[in-house]
């Protein structure tokens, strides 16, 4: 038995340590999110800060989201067009691009772009405020830092990501149209007719619902990482990296489960 333990413990020890650390981190994140939700409904409501954050997350991300969307739609149309040409169904390119964008690519890519542009900045800003004691200063002034700093960022991202996803949908379709019509030489009549025929409102709404969940998740992850960062400038750097990596992975994992739920919900 002792010999067995001598072999097993060095292996299970670090694994159980990692698992308990991971569980503790997850628990702490859940408590953090719970506190942020509770503070949402308590006075004072900080509408001005929410609007500022909506401008930062939404308005200022529009350019980069539109640019990404155009080329995503364009490259997708190019690939689909070349494959569909083998079966003489090029007129399906528009519908394929629009459906893929609405259901998957627009919510996921918009969330990844917002993670890279806005959520990394959130983590860095809150992290810097933590290590320079600005968050503690808020607390000593009897202002709850979660209500003042986290709640506006959380809801601003949740509200703005669906709008950015819609921008992604529209601009992505334009990118697909430009490549499909002007480069691949598909007739615009059948191209658009197939697009309207196959694309339903439910597809777009499903994508927007998903993006709202993504917005909430990436803001919650990034704010948490920044809010509890420690260890000076290096610590802020580590927190920002963690925020981006965990947010991106969360979006992709969450995407699978939300898609399962949305397919079930919208097809029933």
């Amino acid at each position: 038995m002792e010999r067995l333990l001598r072999i097993v413990v060095p292996v299970t020890g670090p694994v159980s340590e990692w698992a308990s650390g991971y569980a503790a981190g997850l628990g702490s994140w859940c408590a953090f999110v719970g506190e942020a939700i509770a503070w949402t409904f308590r006075r004072p409501f900080r509408l001005q800060i929410i609007l500022q954050q909506m401008e930062f997350v939404g308005v200022k991300s529009t350019g980069i989201v539109a640019l990404t969307a155009f080329f995503t739609g364009a490259v997708f149309a190019l690939q689909a067009g070349n494959i569909y040409a083998l079966f003489n169904v090029e007129i399906m390119v528009g519908a394929t691009v629009a459906l893929s964008l609405a259901r998957e690519m627009a919510p996921v890519f918009a969330a990844l772009m917002v993670t890279a542009r806005a959520c990394s900045a959130m983590a860095a800003e809150l992290g810097t405020m933590r290590v320079t004691e600005q968050i503690d200063a808020l607390t000593t002034m009897a202002i709850d830092p979660i209500q003042y700093l986290v709640v506006p960022r959380l809801w601003a991202t949740t509200l703005m990501l669906p709008l950015l996803t819609m921008v992604f949908n529209v601009v992505g379709c334009i990118g697909g149209y430009v490549v499909g019509i002007y480069l691949l030489g598909i007739h615009d009549g059948p191209y658009l007719e197939r697009l309207y025929y196959y694309l339903d409102g439910d597809d777009i709404i499903g994508g927007l619902v998903k993006s709202a969940f993504f917005g909430f998740a990436i803001a919650a992850v990034s704010c948490y990482q920044g809010f509890w960062s420690q260890g000076g400038a290096a610590g802020v750097g580590r927190a920002t990296t963690r925020a981006v990596v965990i947010s991106a992975v969360t979006v992709l994992i969450l995407d699978y489960f939300l898609t399962t739920w949305i397919l079930e919900f919208f097809t029933s």
Binding site: T132, Q134, D136, A137, T140, M141, A142
Partner: peptide, 30 residues
């Protein structure tokens, strides 16, 4: 606790001023 904390003022070692606000806005903040 938040209400009770209004009895306190605290000067931090590095002052902990909000770096996105001016001196006037910092002092006016509370």
């Amino acid at each position: 606790l938040n209400e009770f904390r209004k009895r306190f003022g605290m000067l931090f070692q590095q002052a902990a001023l909000f770096d996105s606000l001016t001196v006037e806005e910092n002092v006016a903040f509370p």
